[in-house]
């Protein structure tokens, strides 16, 4: 209640304060609302326009072209990308399954050679 009275008193003595508050809140909303309008309508319009002209060039039906508004969500794209990644990297799934032993022939093995050990001291 005291605060309310103080605010009323404030109105009496300092009209600039109320101007700052009213204009301040108004301008913050107005600025961000303009950005909202721009990105909600103007940018979307130009992106859709570009997609449609691209479709016309390729001989596709523009109405069937995916517009910016109906683009898939990032989650769907992430799921598709993950599936592709797993598919392309699952190399073990396509192995032949044939196990071979490669025979290595060696003319000389020094593991038990006294002469070799002596000369390599």
């Amino acid at each position: 209640m005291t605060l309310l009275f103080s605010l009323i008193a404030l109105q009496k003595f300092d009209p600039l304060a109320w101007t700052v508050v009213a204009v301040g809140i108004g301008i913050v909303f107005l600025s961000l609302f303009l950005v909202y309008l721009f990105f909600r309508y103007v940018i979307t319009f130009f992106l859709n326009f570009r997609l449609r002209s691209f479709a016309r060039k390729k001989g596709l039906d523009p109405s069937e072209v995916v517009t910016a508004k109906t683009l898939m969500s990032g989650e769907v794209n992430a799921a598709i990308a993950m599936a592709l990644y797993l598919h392309l990297n699952e190399l073990h799934d396509v192995e032949s399954g044939v196990i071979t032993i490669k025979r290595v022939s060696r003319n000389y093995s020094p593991w038990s050679s006294k002469l070799y050990n002596m000369s390599n001291l």
């Binding site: 605060l3 300092d14 508050v21 301040g24 600025s31």
Partner: peptide, 29 residues
């Protein structure tokens, strides 16, 4: 989702209400 911009604007009301509160408590403009 550009409409979320408006939430960013709404929260700034706190700045201006506090501005009034500071004036009431005797700070200058």
């Amino acid at each position: 989702n550009p409409r979320l911009l408006l939430l960013g604007a709404a929260a700034q009301v706190g700045i201006f209400i506090t501005f009034l509160g500071a004036l009431v408590l005797g700070f200058n403009m």
